[in-house]
Design a protein around this nucleic acid. Sequence first.
RNA 1: GGACCCGUAGCUCAACUGGAUAGAGCACUCGCCUUCUAAGCGAGAUGUUGCAGGUUCAAGUCCUGCCGGGUCCA
Length: 591
Amino acid sequence: MNVFSLMKDRVVEVIQSAVEDGALPSGLKTDAVTAEAPRDAAHGDVSTNAALVLAKQAGMKPRGIAEILASRLLNVDEVDAAEVAGPGFINLRLGASVWHGVVKEVLKTGIAFGDNAAGQQEPINVEYVSANPTGPLHVGHARGAVFGDVLAALLSKSGYAVTKEYYINDAGSQVDSLARALHLRYLVALGKKSDNDFAAAAEAGDVEYAGGYLKDAAVKLVDADGDKWADAHEDEWMEPVRTFAIKAMMQMIREDLAALGIGQDLETSERSLVESGRIETAISDLERQGLVYTGVLEPPKGKKPDDWEARPQLLFKSTEFGDDIDRPFKKSDGTWTYFASDVAYHRDKFDRGFSQMIDVWGADHGGYVKRMQAAVKALSNGEGALDIKLCQLVKIFDKGEPVRMSKRSGTFVTLRDLIDAVGKDVVRFIMLTRRNDAPLDFDYAKATEKSRENPVFYVQYAHARINSVFRHAAEAFKDLDLTDPGLTHADLSLCSDDAELAIMRTVSAWPRIVESAAQAHEPHRLAFYLNDLAAELHALWNRGNENAELRFLLPDEPGRSRARLALVRSVALVIASGLHVFGVQPVEEMR
RNA sequence: GGACCCGUAGCUCAACUGGAUAGAGCACUCGCCUUCUAAGCGAGAUGUUGCAGGUUCAAGUCCUGCCGGGUCCA
């Protein structure tokens, strides 16, 4: 149950009844009415802006409407008090039984608490990682990978039918370069060339992918095909070696992702789109709509690139959909641009039934957003929605010192390095402690530090503490039923301390956090919520230090102990629910 | 030159897509272990939300123009 959506429904019902009684004029639109948790606890449990929203429509003063609604809201079961405040807010205070009901619901539903049906099982496609199949994943990919994976889990929890997808860019010139690099490694593996030859070629810039990771693939190629391609011409070996290389790289990438706990539902190959003629289909479809023409683009403003020359090319009228200039579908050599195949790919997704799509990209692709969204509007007749989430850079630090990374010297930090250094769960959690559109500093030392400053530790510690209480409770109260179903019979009215009621309210907010984070496509909100919930738990725990009456376990008071166990157990379950969305294992004990 | 993202306490960041007196952590000062893990907690101070306008009951949030940082530009 989401207390806030429940109360919003109640407010709307009250407005309707007031309209029926003639207390308010008819024809009021209640779309903008909200029921939210006020920032300031002094403003009650739930606050509604109803009177402010209705004032203009009704031609009445906000506070006047608020008075009418407030007196009627007092008759609602859940409401203990309703008062008009400020410009016309109505602050509602709910009865304790509402919060008790939520705690019991958490005990019954477990980590499924917070699940909601907002998505109505609508299909939604989340495409993420989609790194070129030319090498291992690095830290830059890690952020998008975790972000996409957790966003997908969050959308599932919110009732969407999610498909997690990887787009393999296996058709561009970069995979030809990959094949050439592998072929040279292959010749080395066969003993036809030396490591020095390879190094010299790399030095001369003849090999684009000089990282050592192709050595294994070269050995496997020898195992598979022997010296078959040693003396062959490139025209002969290019296709088979390229296919082999892409397969090997994708295998490596899948293993990297698996180490991060990520397994996607579907991989779509760019090459297969090209070969099946779907680019032509998509483009000619746009042509029929009059959105494709041959024209000449203006030169880029300001500094002119040296090699710029005006020439006619095949263009998409993306300006009709809010883009700044029209975008080319074909390169000067007559082949399709990346944009053209991306258009075909998104058309393919739409045809597969996804009118809702999310792409997770690195921020360096920001310039690509408008044209892609323009294309999706065009190819779906306005029915498709594409949200593009840009993940900003991750900078790696160690004890505050930046870790130098350079692609050229091959010293960039791989995803594996990161996982080996701090563990999968820490990587996943830290990646979500910042909004996707803000840069993220990842400090090895801080990520594994056991302190308040490390959110992973802090949240896990709260969970472990609760488990510790239960270990002791099992000793102290041998005849109490401490299972979740057993705890639902606890008398929660015995939890009457303000701090206890406050943490019940925070627990009750979880469904709202899930729903709003899913709607906004912002999984980081869960991390901040979990941190807040953990802080409340730690605070509550420590109050037992100062006042023994507030300890969770009171040997002489099994009833009250059971109520407090029910309460903290609900906290543990909500933490576990959040960590489950994050793909992080809650720990039972700190070591 | 243009486009996109960002600009909030000394530092690192939140702020429920427009809500009430903008919140946390760090750092600083002081206090809390005979106790369910002190790996923690409490108390204190900190603001012209980059600047200037605009939209409305209400703007950190939306619009326009500047300033500064980042990313990108057949």
